[in-house]
Amino acid sequence: MILKCIDAISEFTGKLCAWCLVAVGFFITFEIVMRYVFNAPTIWVDEVSRILQVWVVYLAAAYVLKHREMVTIELILRNPRSLWRKLAESLAILVMFLFAGAAIYFGFALWLHDTLAGHTTDTYLAPPKWFTHAPVWVGNALLVLQGLAQLVRVWTEELPEDDILEGAH
Rank of each mutant, 00 (worst) to 15 (best):
L143Q: 02
V138D: 02
Q150M: 13
I43F: 01
R78K: 11
F26D: 04
T156G: 04
L145A: 12
F12T: 15
V154W: 02
W19H: 08
L87D: 01
E47W: 07
A88L: 01
E158S: 15
R50A: 14
L52M: 15
D162V: 09
G118V: 04
A100M: 05
A102V: 08
A92M: 07
T42D: 12
E11S: 09
L143T: 07
L98T: 12
D7P: 01
A149W: 03
T42W: 09
Q53C: 12
W155A: 07
A62Q: 05
V138C: 01
L16Q: 05
H133S: 08
T121I: 01
L116Q: 13
W111V: 00
V56H: 08
I43L: 11
I73P: 00
A92C: 10
R68I: 01
L165M: 07
D114R: 11
I9K: 03
E69R: 11
F27N: 02
V138G: 03
R35M: 04
I51E: 11
V45G: 04
V71A: 11
L145K: 06
A60C: 14
D122I: 02
T120V: 15
T156Y: 05
E47H: 11
F99R: 07
V57E: 01
R85I: 00
L142E: 09
E161Q: 14
L83H: 11
S82P: 07
R78Y: 01
L143A: 06
A8V: 03
I93V: 08
A100P: 02
F99E: 05
R78C: 00
I28P: 06
L83N: 11
V22Q: 09
L110N: 11
V37S: 09
M34F: 07
W19A: 07
I2L: 14
A100H: 01
A100C: 15
T121E: 14
T123Q: 08
D114M: 09
D163M: 13
W19K: 00
D122N: 10
M70Q: 12
E31Q: 15
R153K: 15
E69T: 00
L87E: 04
T72Y: 04
L94Q: 03
D114G: 05
Q53K: 05
P135G: 04
V33L: 14
T121M: 15
I164E: 14
L21V: 13
L77N: 12
V71N: 09
E89T: 08
P135W: 03
Y124T: 13
G14N: 09
A126Q: 15
V33W: 09
G25F: 02
L52Q: 10
D7C: 03
N39L: 06
F38M: 14
K4Q: 15
R35T: 14
A40L: 06
H133V: 01
V33N: 03
L98Q: 02
L16K: 04
E11L: 09
M70T: 12
M34E: 12
G107V: 01
T42P: 05
